[in-house]
Amino acid sequence: MANRIEETVRSVDSAALLRLLSRRPRMLALGEPTHREETLLHLRNELFRQLVEEGYRTIAIESDCLTGLLVDEYVTSGEGVLDEIVERGISHGWGACAANRELVRWMRAHNEGRPAAEQVRFAGFDGPLEITGAASPRQALTALHGHLAARVDTGLLPCTRETLDRLLGTDAQWTEPAAMRDPARSVGQSAEAGRLRLIADDLAALVEEQAPRLIAAGPPQEWERARLHARTATGLLRYHHWMADRSPARLARLVGVRDQMMARNLLALAERGPVFVHAHNTHLQREESSMRMGGQRLEWWGAGALVDARLGAEYAFVATALGTIRHQGVEVPAPDTVEGLLYALPAGRCLVDTRRLAQVLDGARPAPRVSPWFGYAPLDPERLADGDGLVFVRDMAPA
């Protein structure tokens, strides 16, 4: 069995990864089963540098799509200070990761002196969301309104900037920390929020209706940014609406809205060329996602499933699985799990042809691994062949 399993693995590099796929995808997604592990982030960086030589020009990570604009501006123009840009531009506190700083530094160095068409681009594709709540829609809405007011007949706008500010009120009411657990503390279903949803929808529609004028009025990046603000404004207001909901569907709708926002951002990025995506396996897998939250089992379609439904063979997903994360109490996997079988191989990391591995394991029925730490999601052995491949990393370096 061990020899047959070893025949399904190869070295981890972009050439081997692309050979594993039936065609070169427009969107190549690499998942991770946990966050903030420098070993995985450095591996992501290495693969992206190699994929740039293969024609990929954009990397999209699970980070705030609006603050990500700061990073993209820095890597393409050099404006700003690296440490400040990484801290402000990469959300969830992940700007503190050394590998994220190194990624941004390398992208800026790569772009120096290159024409725009040959530059690499950075994008966050998550909404301005945290597990504890969501941002105020002010930034996205006012930026969208301002973009349109400067370029189209103001009579077409659904409201004035003053009306928008009055309806938005204070940002503190939108970011109220208690609202995630107590719907009554959310303003997402207030009369003002309902009016803002209609305004955001009208502004987003106007961006599309006025596309010829807006595209001709400036560089493509401005058009892309207006559409991003439109997606974010409508998505945030929908998210806040469900934060205020009291029905049993509340949590499932929240996670579903978040991944829908992710998917819309990814599809927009795919319009401009090949994209390399990095995020949690749960967000990028093709099958339906699930988890337990607030005593409920939630099921929803993640961003990868939504993108795959639209792009088909143009979307490829490669998951990552781990052996040990000893600094988090995750020790050597049991030998009857998929991770245990791969851990027995000598390689510190490898790329696995999951469809061949599923054939090798046919009838063996590996046991599901159980993680002692909530922050690590093991493989589901029943879905081994659903992805296009698997990266296995034997041991995480100490934190």
Rank of each mutant, 00 (worst) to 15 (best):
R4I: 08
E6K: 14
R10L: 10
S11D: 15
A16W: 07
L21M: 04
R23Q: 15
R26W: 08
E37T: 13
E37L: 14
L41H: 15
H42I: 04
L43K: 14
E54W: 07
R57P: 00
E62H: 11
C65R: 13
T67G: 04
V75P: 05
V81M: 07
H92M: 11
A98I: 04
A99N: 05
E102T: 04
V104P: 07
W106R: 02
H110V: 12
E112S: 14
A116W: 10
G124R: 01
F125G: 10
D126K: 09
P137N: 04
L141S: 08
L148K: 09
R151C: 01
D153M: 09
R161V: 15
L164D: 11
T175K: 02
A179R: 09
D182G: 01
A184R: 13
Q189T: 06
Q189Y: 05
S190E: 02
A200Y: 08
D202F: 01
L203P: 05
L206K: 08
A211H: 12
I215R: 12
A217N: 06
P219K: 13
Q221L: 13
T234G: 02
G235D: 00
A244Y: 02
A249D: 15
L251I: 00
R253K: 14
L254Y: 00
G256K: 01
D259T: 00
Q260A: 12
A263W: 01
R264Y: 03
N265I: 07
A268H: 14
E271F: 08
V275Y: 09
L284G: 10
M291G: 11
W300V: 00
A303N: 03
D308C: 06
D308R: 07
D308I: 04
A313I: 07
E314K: 06
A319R: 15
T337D: 09
G348V: 01
C350W: 07
T354G: 06
Q359C: 11
D362R: 15
G363N: 04
S371H: 00
F374C: 05
Y376T: 04
P378E: 08
E382H: 14
D386V: 03
G389Q: 10
R394W: 02
